[in-house]
Design a binder for these strands. Structure first.
Lengths: 146, 146
DNA sequence: TTTCCTTGGGAACACCGATGCGCATCGAAA
DNA sequence: TTTCGATGCGCATCGGTGTTCCCAAGGAAA
């Protein structure tokens, strides 16, 4: 894990479609050496895989909603059940255990062919151990290169 | 844009490293047809590109912080300058214009070789038009398949 | 200095992406 | 019903690229 590996990771984290030759050029290596580095990074588990970047349209023109969740209590079992149920919930794209007022902060993606009203009623309220849900609506999500 | 295209998008959104043959199998198409579909989706702009999924370690073992931002005012120019400055801020991985109390919600990634104290002081406070920053710390981010 | 080990470069091979062709299917028009 | 045109599939082919050799160069240890 040296400077070149860092460059490779930075590059592939942004755009992975390039050939070994192109990658080698950008990091100052021959195609074969660049290729070998990438394979090593994959074996080491630093590169987990590859996926397509999809347009908003391809993702169903989602709007983003943040939901602060307070559980009925903070017992280990309660939190564990809640988290396990979350993992099976497609609409929740991120979940964070939080300090402060509420217990969890969820990032929910609402596809345009769905509605938050339905998700709130049928999905989020149905999660086990939920005491209170506070919704923050986004007006617009800024484009990020991330 | 039919059922097969949806399957392809769903598949490539999760894992894009497979060959046309493997992709064709999963969506019920010959390799050449699957390949042609993918190229069309790329041309249509539904598939924007490809990137590597990086491990937490490869991303610098970041911890996540949410920051609610209130601007000095909500004039067009103020918001625009703030947003432009945001775009040049690497640590801010997401930014949402919000309804409710504060104006923006930022998701900030703090690499373990950095500190939130520094980012707060040198990066976030330095953004133009900022009136108030309220930080919510995450204790733990749940693993998501997203 | 010698040896070992790591890492890069070059070349050969195999595989897969890319594309042209023929054919089947479907819908529209007469 | 028949015909025409368009669309999209599968097959076959070709070339580019991934993959894997081997060898050389450089650095560390003895």
């Amino acid at each position: 894990m040296d400077t070149i590996d860092s460059k490779i990771i930075a590059q592939l984290g942004q755009e992975s479609g390039l050939t070994s030759e192109a990658l080698g050029e950008r990091v100052g290596l021959s195609p074969s050496a660049a290729h070998r580095r990438v394979k090593t990074l994959e074996q080491q588990g630093l590169i987990l895989g590859y996926r397509a970047r999809l347009s908003r349209a391809a993702r169903g023109n989602p709007s983003t909603v943040f939901v602060s969740v307070t559980l009925t209590d903070q017992r280990q079992a309660t939190m564990q059940q809640f988290e396990q149920a979350l993992a099976r919930t497609l609409q929740v794209s991120e979940a964070h255990l939080m300090s402060g007022e509420s217990d969890y902060l969820l990032k929910v993606l609402v596809r345009e062919d769905d509605s938050y009203e339905r998700i709130h009623r049928e999905v989020l309220s149905a999660l086990p151990g939920v005491h209170r849900l506070v919704t923050q609506f986004t007006i617009r999500t800024l484009a990020t290169e991330d």
